[in-house]
C-alpha cells in the first residue's frame, strides 16, 4: 500500500529541467531512500511533496488523494538547510512551529514537554536558540519536525551535525517512528546508513529516475557472481587452480591469510569454485560479494554520465 505516489512529475525552472517525469511509490510504514548526486533534483521533489512549490506536469497522490494544503499537517519535514530563529526562546519557538503545523496550543505544549523530557533537555526551554550548540539546535529541530506526529516524515541529511552518540539516538528514534506507523522519506549521501535503514530507494540523477526498488533486490540485481575467499596454507598462485572464465579480481595477504575476490562466469555457481580450490588449502571464510549501495550509486551515476557523453 503506497502512502505517497508520484505520477510523472516534471518541474522546470526556465530552461532548466529539475525533474523529468519522475514516478515513484513510497510504501506505507517503510523507510524510503531518496538518493542522487548533488543537483539531481531531490530537493525539488521534496519541495513539491511539501507543497512549497508545485509541479509543472504530473501529480502527487497522498493516500490516493491529490495533494491538498491541509496535507502539510500530516507531513513533517526536516530540510537539509535548517535553522531556527536565533533570538527567540527555544520553547516559545517550538510552540510556534508546532502550532503552524496545526496543533492547538495546549496539545503542542503537552507533546513538547514529553519530547523535551525524553531528550532530557527540559532546562533548555527558556533559553534562546543562539545560546545552544549546533548539535543541541539539531535536537530541537528534530523535535519540532516530529511533534505533530506526522504520518509522513521527510528527513534531508538528518545526521549531519550530530556526534556518533546522537546519531545513534536519532537512528533509534527514526526506527521507533516507523514501528509506530510513520513512513519516512530519507534523503542522504551516506550510503552506509541507506543500507542500514532503508527498505526501498529511488536513485535520481540529472532530473531522471535511474533506479528504484527494494534495497535487497537492487543489491542482488547488481550481484556479479563474485566471491570473496580467505584461505591459508597455499602459497602458489591460486589463479592456476581456476578453470578458464574464472577471473581473479583482487588478492592480498596479511596475517598468514590470503584474501582474494573471484568472479565466476555466467552459469557457474559457488560449488564449482569450491570444488576447484578446496583440496589445496584451508579456507577461513567464503562469501558472496554483494555490492554495497555505495558501489551501486557510483556505478549507476557514472553509467548515466558516460551515456550522456556518448549521446552528445
Amino acid at each position: 500500500m503506497a502512502i505517497l505516489t508520484a505520477n510523472k512529475v516534471t518541474k522546470r525552472f526556465g530552461d532548466f529541467t529539475a525533474l523529468n517525469s519522475i514516478s515513484l511509490e513510497v510504501p506505507e510504514q517503510s523507510i524510503f531512500g531518496l538518493l542522487g548526486p548533488n543537483g539531481a533534483g531531490k530537493t525539488t521533489l521534496i519541495r513539491i511533496i511539501n507543497q512549497i512549490t508545485g509541479p509543472d506536469e504530473g501529480e502527487i497522490l497522498f493516500n490516493n488523494q491529490k495533494l491538498k494544503q491541509n496535507h502539510v499537517e500530516i507531513i513533517g519535514y526536516l530540510p537539509e538547510e535548517r535553522g531556527l530563529y536565533k533570538k527567540m526562546g527555544v520553547g516559545e519557538q517550538a510552540l510556534y512551529l508546532a502550532q503552524l503545523k496545526g496543533l492547538s496550543r495546549h496539545d503542542a505544549m503537552t507533546r513538547l514537554k514529553k519530547w523535551f523530557e525524553k531528550f532530557e533537555i527540559e532546562d533548555w526551554w527558556g533559553k534562546k536558540v543562539e545560546e545552544l550548540s549546533k548539535g543541541m539546535q539539531q535536537k530541537v529541530q528534530f523535535i519540532v519536525t516530529v511533534v505533530h506526529e506526522p504520518r509522513l516524515l521527510i528527513f534531508d541529511e538528518p545526521f549531519s551535525g550530530f556526534d556518533p552518540i546522537n546519531v545513534n539516538l536519532l537512528r533509534d528514534e527514526i526506527l521507533e517512528l516507523r514501528s509506530n506507523g510513520a513512513t519516512i522519506i530519507f534523503s542522504t549521501h551516506n550510503m552506509a546508513s541507506v543500507e542500514e535503514l532503508c527498505d526501498d530507494i529511488v536513485l535520481i540523477n540529472k532530473a531522471n529516475k535511474i533506479l528504484d526498488g527494494k534495497v535487497k533486490d537492487i543489491r542482488w540485481q547488481h550481484f556479479t557472481n563474485t566471491y570473496q575467499v580467505n584461505y591459508r596454507n597455499y602459497e602458489n598462485n591460486i589463479a592456476e587452480l581456476l578453470a578458464p572464465g574464472f577471473e581473479l579480481l583482487e588478492s592480498s595477504y596479511a596475517d598468514d591469510t590470503h584474501s582474494v575476490k573471484i568472479r565466476l562466469p555466467k552459469g557457474t555457481g559457488s560449488g564449482e569454485l569450491l570444488n576447484a580450490i578446496l583440496p589445496h588449502m584451508s579456507i577461513a571464510s567464503f562469501a558472496e560479494v554483494i555490492p554495497s549501495m555505495n558501489d551501486i550509486f557510483i556505478t549507476e551515476v557514472n553509467a548515466v554520465s558516460a551515456n550522456s557523453i556518448l549521446e552528445s
Binding site: N50, I52, V72, Y77, R82, G83, Y85, K86, L97
Partner: peptide, 16 residues
C-alpha cells in the same frame, strides 16, 4: 533573517 537562519524552509513547509 529568516533566509540566513534557514528557518524559512521549515516554515513554508507549514504555510504558503
Amino acid at each position: 533573517e529568516e533566509k540566513t537562519s534557514r528557518i524559512v524552509e521549515v516554515i513554508i513547509s507549514s504555510v504558503k
